[in-house]
Amino acid sequence: MARGATGGSHATRRRLVLIGLLAEPGARPAPAWPDLSGDDWREIDRMAQVHRLQPLLHHRQQDNPAIPRDIRAGWREAFRESALWALQVSGELAATHALLDRAGLAPVALKGAWLAWHAYPHPALRPLRDIDLWLPADQIIAAYGLLREQGYQAADDAQLSLDQSLRLDKHLPPLVSPRGVLVELHHRLWEIPGRMDHGAPLADQDELRDQTIRIGPIAYLDPQDTLAHLIIHAVYDHRLDCGPLLLADIAFLLARTPIDWDRFARDARKGGWLKGAALVLDMVRDHAPHLALPPPLPDCPAPPGIAADLLLQELDTRQSAGVIATLRAGGLRAFVLRILARRADRAGAPVARDLRGEGGFAAWATTRLARTLRELSRSEVRGQSRRLATLSRWLDS
């Protein structure tokens, strides 16, 4: 993982230490850290909390005397709380899936739902923020209406209509279940072309749906397709801001199920996500060197050395950094559309978000631009925007 560093800065060193603490036995050692101060450990713990890493750190490092006792105690408590939350989410997943199933709809649980209960050694190690259920596009409005009738509430004020979300987003506005769990209904597995600063991978969604599996009453993506989904979601949809759980997700998935690597390479090349696959598998080799991974994928240039910083980028500045990254990578038109709160696919006219809940368009645009300019005065935000733009340009190169 050392080759993912962007320099010798103190912040980068902390990030590398955290990623090293998450790595599996036998991984490349983390940078030397005996001289870490209390402030260093508190910052490492803060990053771990932001990226849902504390339960896994408890699992990996609970007996490590080099880590301050209070930090380890906090990780132990995070594991306990995550275990309780996992029980609640498990019940909600079963109830929501059954509700849609009984109505003749065809929900498929995505990513964390399979990983937490069928790949990780304990579901608490893989905290879920929400439940993602994938449905055919011609069923999703009916599914949304059914959940609303059953007491599921809108999580936020919707800024797009359901029809606009169906055209421009990969999921409808999130709902909160009667028991307080966030549920997202997806009609696409990843972003449409034109939504990001780089090209979007292609997907044969009918083929992926034909390959789904069923464990008990719940349908899931096939694990090999889950691997592809994890890579595309992390790299192309989120430019790695989903955090180092990505590495653990893939390591536990690969330890749990065999992968047809020839098919994987064919799918990646056909779908246009070969570079993202090469980038992620390169990181996984460092994270879990005992895994039987294929050699580096052919015909793929070396990725830029920004992975460690992007895996632990600051989430509260990603919007501002992303706005400037859009200017750097996508040009002035893409930047203006983002500032003006417009969304568009490559074939359609831009659609304006409904910003009445944020004081109207003028108030939103002024606030968004002012915040972006204010945060750009911080060197770390400028660096974050450069790294985001670098990744987008590399993906399209």
Rank of each mutant, 00 (worst) to 15 (best):
M283G: 15
E81V: 11
L312G: 13
R28E: 09
L376T: 04
P304G: 10
R46Q: 00
W75L: 02
W134E: 03
A321S: 15
H58A: 11
F361R: 15
R382V: 01
L227D: 11
T212S: 07
G91Q: 02
T6F: 02
A265Y: 02
A349C: 06
H171R: 08
G348I: 07
D40E: 11
T367R: 13
P68D: 00
A363G: 08
P123I: 10
W41K: 00
H238E: 13
D262W: 15
L312F: 13
R42W: 11
R129H: 10
A98W: 04
R386I: 14
Q54V: 03
Q319M: 10
W394M: 01
F335E: 12
R214S: 07
P295E: 03
S37G: 08
R102D: 09
W364G: 14
L57F: 15
L310D: 05
Y120R: 05
L133G: 09
R148G: 15
L340A: 14
D35L: 09
L189C: 12
E149I: 01
A113K: 00
L125S: 03
Q139T: 01
L291S: 08
R72S: 08
I232V: 09
A200K: 02
W33F: 13
A347F: 12
G199T: 09
H198G: 06
R214L: 02
G194A: 07
R209A: 06
M1Q: 02
P223V: 00
R76F: 12
T96C: 10
I231C: 06
L189A: 13
L53A: 10
H97W: 01
D35W: 15
P136Q: 05
D237S: 14
L168Q: 05
R263Y: 05
H171N: 03
V181M: 14
L293K: 01
Q49M: 13
S37Q: 04
V50Q: 00
L208V: 09
R72L: 04
H198V: 12
W85S: 13
Q49W: 15
